[in-house]
Design a protein around this nucleic acid. Structure first.
Length: 399
RNA sequence: GAGGAUGUAGCUCAGUUGGCAGAGCGAGGGAUUGUGGAUCCCUAUGCCGCGGGUUCGACUCCCGUCAUCCUCCCCA
C-alpha cells in the first residue's frame, strides 16, 4: 500500500495555491454579503437517489461519475457531485421556504466526480455557489450573473459570459421534437452524436467535431421556439445586462449538462474552459416534494479559477532577529508588533547575527528587527530595511 | 471508459551500442563570535515509479502495473 501518496484525483492544495484559493472564496463571500446571501453548510454525503432525482438519471454525472457506496446499514449513499441538490434537500426538509418568501443561500465545499483527472479537473474539487429561491422575476437571473461578473472583475480575470434560454416544460418539448426530426433527416453526424440524438439530443448542439458543427448550423434554434413567457423573461434579462454594460455572447447552442435547468442558462468561460456556470431551475424544488418555487443559481469551480490568478501581493514580513541575551525581550517585542497587526517571524535558527540575517533574507523579509543587549539598554530596537539596506533605531520600552 | 506522451536527487533535466548513477538550481556547513543578497570552498541526498521477464550483468531491452500530464467523453 502506497501510504505516502495521495489518491488519484485528490490533490493537495499547498501554500501559494491555498492563498489563491482563499482570495477567490473571499471575493465571492464579500459579494454574497452585500447581496444579502446567507451561508448554508451541508453534508458531503447524501442518499444517492437524491442526485438521481435532481441532477438527472440520464446524465453522465449520475451514470458514471458518482462515488457511490453502501454503508453498514446498507444504505446507498454518494459523495455529492454538485451542490444544488443538497441545498434543495435541506431547505425542503427544514421547511425554510415557508418561513422565508425569498431565500438566498450560498455554499462552499468539495464536490466529487469519478472522472479522469486533467487540467482544472480533479476527482475532489471545490465549488463556491449560490441559489436564489422564490423569485420568478428575471431580476434574480440578472443579479446572480451580475454578482459573478463583479467577482471576476475584482479578481482581474478577463472572461466571456455566454447566455442562452433553453425554455420550459411548455415550449422545450416542441423544440426537442423539431431538433430530433432535423437530426434524423440528416446524415454524417459523428458516432457520439448518433448516440446523443437518441439519449440527449440537446447535447448534439455543443459537439466539438467540425462536421457536426457544420451540420448543426442549419439546425432549429431553441430561441425560435420559446413560449411567450420564456421569451419575455429572456429579453428582460438581456435588457438588464445591457443596462449595466455587462458584455455577453448569446450562444443558442449553449446547453447545460444537468437536467433541472429551465429558461436562463449561462457560463463564464476563460480560454475555452468553463469556470463558472449556472441557470434557472423552476421545477426542481417541487420535483423534490417542496412547494412550487422558482429558483436560479450558479456554481464556480475554484480550482479552475485558480488557474487564472496571478501572484498575490503579500503583507510585508518583519523578521525578528535577537541575540541570545535578548530572547525574552524579543518575544515581548514580537507580541507587541503583532498586536499592531504586523506580520512577524522570530528567527530562532542561526548561531550569529550574520547567519540570522542570512535567514531573514532567505525567508523574504522586507524588514529585519534586531535586538540585543545594547538595544535593551538604550530602550530601542533596530529596524532594518532589507531592500534599502538602511537601518534606524526605534524607541521601545521593554517592560 | 478511449487515445497519446512521460516517470532518474527537494526542483528542472542529462545518461552513448546493456558495463560502478550525473549536472544545474535549491538545501546544509564553512572563510570565527553585532549586519543579509555577490564570489569562493566543502557536504549530503537516489528502492533510476512498482512488479515480473530476458541477460554473466538492466536506469537502458520485453511484458504487466501504478501515477502524472495532454486530448476525447462529460463537466465547475
Amino acid at each position: 500500500m502506497e501510504i505516502l501518496k495521495a489518491i488519484r484525483g485528490f490533490d493537495d492544495i499547498l501554500l501559494e495555491e491555498a492563498k489563491k484559493f482563499r482570495v477567490i472564496t473571499n471575493t465571492f463571500r464579500n459579494l454574497f454579503e452585500v447581496y444579502n446571501f446567507e451561508e448554508i453548510i451541508l453534508p458531503i454525503v447524501e442518499y444517492k437517489e437524491l442526485f438521481d432525482r435532481s441532477v438527472g438519471e440520464i446524465t453522465d454525472i449520475v451514470q458514471k461519475e458518482m462515488f457511490v457506496f453502501e454503508d453498514k446499514s446498507h444504505r446507498v449513499l454518494a459523495l455529492r457531485p454538485e451542490g444544488t441538490a443538497g441545498v434543495v434537500r435541506a431547505i425542503v426538509e427544514h421547511g425554510l421556504l415557508y418561513k422565508h418568501p425569498t431565500l438566498k443561500l450560498f455554499y462552499e465545499g468539495s464536490m466529487f466526480r469519478y472522472e479522469r483527472p486533467q487540467t482544472g479537473r480533479k476527482r475532489q474539487f471545490n465549488q463556491i455557489g449560490a441559489e436564489v429561491f422564490g423569485v420568478e422575476d428575471p431580476i434574480a437571473d440578472f443579479e446572480t450573473i451580475k454578482l459573478c461578473f463583479e467577482a471576476f472583475n475584482k479578481l482581474s480575470i478577463d472572461i466571456i459570459l455566454e447566455i442562452n434560454s433553453i425554455g420550459c416544460p411548455k415550449c422545450r418539448p416542441k423544440y426537442k421534437e423539431a431538433l430530433v426530426n432535423y437530426l434524423h433527416s440528416i446524415g454524417g453526424l459523428c458516432e457520439d452524436c448518433n448516440v446523443r440524438k437518441e439519449k440527449n439530443p440537446l447535447r448534439v448542439l455543443d459537439c466539438k467535431v467540425e462536421t457536426c458543427k457544420e451540420l448543426i448550423k442549419e439546425a432549429p434554434v431553441m430561441l425560435d421556439y420559446l413560449c411567450e413567457e420564456c421569451d419575455t423573461h429572456y429579453k428582460s434579462l438581456k435588457t438588464y445586462l445591457k443596462e449595466f454594460n455587462i458584455p455577453y455572447i448569446e450562444n443558442p447552442r449553449l446547453v447545460r449538462g444537468l437536467d433541472y435547468y429551465t429558461k436562463t442558462v449561462f457560463e463564464f468561460i476563460k480560454d475555452g474552459l468553463t469556470v463558472l456556470a449556472g441557470g434557472r431551475y423552476d421545477y426542481l424544488v417541487e420535483s423534490l416534494r417542496g412547494p412550487h418555487t422558482p429558483a436560479v443559481g450558479f456554481a464556480a469551480g475554484i480550482e479552475r479559477i485558480m488557474l487564472y490568478i496571478n501572484e498575490i501581493p503579500q503583507k510585508p514580513l518583519y523578521a525578528l532577529v535577537y541575540l541570545e541575551e535578548a530572547k525574552i525581550y524579543a518575544l515581548k517585542l514580537a507580541n507587541s508588533l503583532r498586536q499592531d497587526g504586523l506580520k512577524v517571524e522570530i528567527i530562532t535558527r542561526g548561531t550569529n547575527l550574520k547567519k540570522k540575517l542570512e535567514i531573514a533574507n532567505k525567508i523574504g523579509a522586507s524588514y529585519t528587527i534586531i535586538i540585543g543587549p545594547e538595544e535593551i539598554r538604550k530602550n530601542v530596537y533596530i529596524l532594518k530595511d532589507m531592500n534599502k539596506k538602511e537601518q534606524k533605531e526605534i524607541p521601545f520600552s521593554f517592560s
